[in-house]
Design a protein around this nucleic acid. Sequence first.
DNA 1: TCGATTTTTGTAATCGATTACATCTTGCGT
DNA 2: ACGCAAGATGTAATCGATTACAAAAATCGA
Lengths: 356, 356
Amino acid sequence: MSRKRWRSVKEIRIADVARLAGVSTATVSRVLSDPDKVRQKTHDVVMEAVRRSGYTPNSTAQKLRTRRTMNVLVVAPRLTNPVFAEILRGVDDELTQSGYGIIIGNLDNRREREARYVDLALSRQVDGVLLLTGYIPEKGQRSMRDSGLPIVAMCAAIHEEGIPNVVVQDREATRHAVEYLARLGHRRFGYVSGTLGSIIEVERFAGFREGIAAAGFSQDDVVRWEGPFVFSTGVAAAEDFLKMKERPTGIFAACDESAIGFIKRVRAERVRVPQDVSVIGFDGIEFADYTEPTLTTFRQPLHELGRVGADVLSRLIRNEMKPEDWSVRLPLTLLERDTTGPVLHKDYKSLRRSAV
Amino acid sequence: MSRKRWRSVKEIRIADVARLAGVSTATVSRVLSDPDKVRQKTHDVVMEAVRRSGYTPNSTAQKLRTRRTMNVLVVAPRLTNPVFAEILRGVDDELTQSGYGIIIGNLDNRREREARYVDLALSRQVDGVLLLTGYIPEKGQRSMRDSGLPIVAMCAAIHEEGIPNVVVQDREATRHAVEYLARLGHRRFGYVSGTLGSIIEVERFAGFREGIAAAGFSQDDVVRWEGPFVFSTGVAAAEDFLKMKERPTGIFAACDESAIGFIKRVRAERVRVPQDVSVIGFDGIEFADYTEPTLTTFRQPLHELGRVGADVLSRLIRNEMKPEDWSVRLPLTLLERDTTGPVLHKDYKSLRRSAV
DNA sequence: TCGATTTTTGTAATCGATTACATCTTGCGT
DNA sequence: ACGCAAGATGTAATCGATTACAAAAATCGA
């Protein structure tokens, strides 16, 4: 029976190859890692032995000796959110090029899970950490940075010494969203939040408030619905929205998923989008182009974000960071699609369609 | 400046703790891994030293000595497909419980990328592999199973000695899909494929053909559109569909994304779903409940699939597999939603609404 | 051809844990 | 108090590579 099949595979060590080639282990090691250091003839003999024995170096032994694991940890708040999947793709594209492995840390929106991954970092299983999460620090909680490992923050900016930031311009974009809605004639606003306690949410809401102020409105003109970055948050927000007498007409959702949930729910009650209510999302996930109507949203340069973050991390690991790269803030693109439009509500006289 | 901050963190080794506690390294090791083997008093002294020094064992050294990396590799065809994200969640839930780390392998739908991950396996960076991919073997290509590592196949069944299968009943479900469409009165069928060369696609198409035959139709009544498991495959299929004179009325798409792409595209041309064409998807991703109309589809038990696969793998690693678990085939659930309905086309006289 | 220099190769220490085996303690019965 | 078994602890080998340093071989000029 084959139950122990893989146990029976004989492990080939560098010493076996050395013996087979009639050289020392040092020479074999050199052939494999620094071929210029050996004679061509020796090289060929060793390579032949490697080939015939099917030798592959044991990477754990290499890691121990070289003190480099060639692994990085990527901590994401939730895997099923396409935003993180897309960022991860960028990270993957950049890092596997340079031989790094990616270990994923999935919090599934539960902050307390972070502890496991702090352990991972502390036990030196990885050379660096890419944080796609970011929470407002709680005292007493052991955090990633206690590990002393190189960290790159890719949530909204963490202003902390020694931690580079690779983020998008959330705050500016959110402010811009409000201005955009205001230009369309909206006067009462709704804000569907993201995960409370997350720095991203703090930033986006701050931008939103700035926008409200800049456009000359009072914070009282704003309704805020709270919840994590998921569909159901939008649905719940919509439930509340539907109960209101004086409904807001311009809604900003801190992520596409909740925007989509919101729209789906209100449309089920014959609220028209964008005629009765305009909705603008945030992220630019692929799916947002397949909803009906297609979602107006800010597109994050997700893949690039991942690449850049990974690049910064690998430079940080190699101690090759240039000071000007310590904070990268990528711009977002407003995708004007079909869930936003001028106010048509009876309260308002001028339709200002020209303002679109 | 802090550019070298993490370099200056002094690494604490087990020897340091031993010295601090006035015991040998063996004792420290025992305290940490097998506390019953030491006297209570010694235990306390050592733990205090551990605490004060902030020691965490170097996991690379542990791995080398114990020959267990406590890492598994998960190879997925494409990260941004919510199907794999969801499976990954299940895997994560199961494996991080038992202390395993997850290294991801993302093929991004490009088969040739598999080679990198074969290297990972060969160099013993992981204790086992979870294959969410599966391609029809090509000769000469070095495959995962050459690594001799425990592997669990979670794509459609790979019938190979020593490789357990944890899969869904694709074939049955697909056959069922055809029967379902046939009962609704459909007589001409469309099949939107998944990635060619993938075993999943082979299985699903086989099931489809079986269904066609079982329902008494000829394979000539079927149009097949080819492409990978992505939105645009459905869009492209729709383009072709729109050009046809005699359009199929019952469409099966091998994944929800392409089903959604298809629907979006045909609706843009005023083709009504389900009145003009019924579409049934496969996967049951969360989005499918937010499209308009909501998508009829087969729900895969994704999270459970991940958990079970991970469980089987960890048992396989520990050599605790029971023969009856070598093939697990989870059932799918048909979610009857709004993209399927009885044929209303003028060609057919009886609407057979009762057949729904 | 010889010795000095450079290049190539080998020896053995090292990375940081675990663990077999040896040795030392402790507890217990008499 | 003594002897012996059981329990606790220490010593040192080990996992499988890399690499500093030493030694040997090749190269070169005179």
